[in-house]
């Protein structure tokens, strides 16, 4: 069998510089900072809804936004781990949490029926604004995670793209959700969940070329 020339080993060894190994908590800190920055941005641009602390928010407000936060955290953690490749890496937690989020539109659909859902979509004058804002604010997290992946060595590019979009959409919707006083299930299930689905699909196709190595 031919052997790799030792000159390659010599070249690589002579090129060796100390490196700072990738650390999980660095990635977690980056995501946490980007989430905090997103909330600050929401406060500066739209102002957070004071009804949350004045006891005016409904139960579904806390449940839905809590679900966005959990999905965002689970998906972001999976992406952070993907920067350091390893056979055996699993993204099951993020996938299950995304499944959990699907409960919102499913519940709204069951409660309202197809006609009621269509009516809720067409009559919600603020819905599109929430959708665009959630998507836009999600880009902060998306940018942070893409930078993290570019520093790393992701080997499951489609999954990395989808989960980055999922995390970005969920954190964007969570952050903007803190400014939105419309706390009905139909509004949250449609207009606040849509950015998560949209960014997951966009991430699946747009992010792999950015992080390929």
């Amino acid at each position: 069998m031919n052997r790799v020339p030792n000159s390659l080993i010599d070249t690589l060894a002579s090129d060796l510089e100390p490196v700072q190994p990738i650390r999980l908590w660095h990635g977690i800190a980056l995501v946490a900072l980007s989430a905090v920055a997103t909330v600050i941005l929401v406060e500066l641009l739209d102002g957070l809804w004071h009804g949350i602390v004045q006891g005016r928010a409904s139960g579904i407000f806390f449940i839905a936004n809590g679900m966005f936060a959990i999905v965002g955290a689970a998906a972001a953690l999976a992406v952070v781990r993907m920067a350091s490749p390893s056979v055996g890496n699993s993204q099951e937690g993020a996938r299950w949490s995304a499944g959990m989020l699907a409960l919102l539109p499913i519940s709204a659909g069951l409660m309202l029926g197809v006609g009621g859902l269509f009516s809720a979509i067409s009559n919600d004058v603020y819905g599109l604004d929430c959708f665009l804002a959630g998507t836009g604010f999600g880009l902060v997290t998306a940018a942070a995670l893409v930078l993290w992946l570019r520093r790393g060595a992701p080997v499951s590019l489609s999954a990395a793209g989808t989960l980055t979009g999922l995390a970005a959409g969920a954190i964007g919707s969570f952050a903007y959700g803190l400014a939105c006083p419309i706390d009905t299930i139909e509004h949250l299930a449609i207009w606040h969940t849509a950015p998560v689905a949209l960014l997951a699909v966009v991430g699946r196709y747009a992010i792999p070329p950015l992080v390929r190595w």
Binding site: V4, L8, I9, L12, D15, L16, V19, Q20, P21, I22, R23, L24, A83, S84, P85, S86, R151, G152, A153, W213
Partner: peptide, 16 residues
């Protein structure tokens, strides 16, 4: 081997 060299920082010493 060149990929291992270029991406050596992506190995987390706390993992296998």
């Amino acid at each position: 081997m060149m990929a291992v060299h270029a991406k050596r920082a992506t190995w987390d010493p706390t993992r296998a």
